Computed example of a mutant assay.
Amino acid sequence: MTISAAIESFLAMLAAERGAAANTLAAYRRDLEGAEEAIGDLVAADNAVLASLGTVWAGLAPSSLARKCSALRQFYGFLMDEGWRKDDPSPALPRPRARRPLPRLLNHAEVEALFARAEEDAAGEKPDAVRMLALLELLYGSGLRATELVSLPLSAVPRDAPFLTVTGKGGQQRMVPVSTRARQALSRWMALRGGEGKALFPSSSKQGHLTRIRLFQLLRALAARAGLDPEKVSPHVLRHAFATHLLEGGADLRVLQTLLGHADIATTQIYTHVDSARLVALVNARHPLAVRGQGG
Rank of each mutant, 00 (worst) to 15 (best):
L106Y: 00
L72I: 00
P94G: 05
T55G: 13
Q173V: 01
P153N: 12
V176D: 01
R183G: 13
D121A: 11
R117N: 01
P96C: 02
S179G: 14
W84F: 10
L136F: 09
P89Q: 09
S63K: 14
A118H: 02
G77M: 00
W84G: 03
A109Y: 08
A66S: 08
R131T: 12
G171N: 02
L65A: 05
G83N: 10
P96G: 02
P153H: 09
G59H: 13
T167R: 11
A98S: 09
D160H: 13
T165H: 09
T147M: 12
T55S: 14
N107A: 11
D160C: 06
L133V: 03
P177E: 04
G54M: 07
L114S: 07
S90C: 02
A134F: 05
E112D: 15
R159S: 14
V111H: 06
L152N: 03
V49T: 14
A134D: 08
S155T: 15
S151L: 10
K169F: 05
D128L: 15
S90N: 01
L164C: 03
F78Q: 08
L50H: 12
S52E: 06
V166R: 00
A182V: 03
Y76V: 02
Q74P: 04
M132Y: 07
G170R: 09
N107D: 15
G171D: 04
Q74H: 14
F163D: 05
K126S: 13
S70A: 14
T167W: 01
F75K: 03
V176K: 01
L65M: 10
R181D: 09
V157N: 03
E112V: 13
F115D: 04
P162Y: 04
L72H: 00
D41C: 12
L105F: 07
P101K: 12
E137N: 07
V150S: 12
A51C: 07
G83T: 13
V56E: 13
D87Q: 11
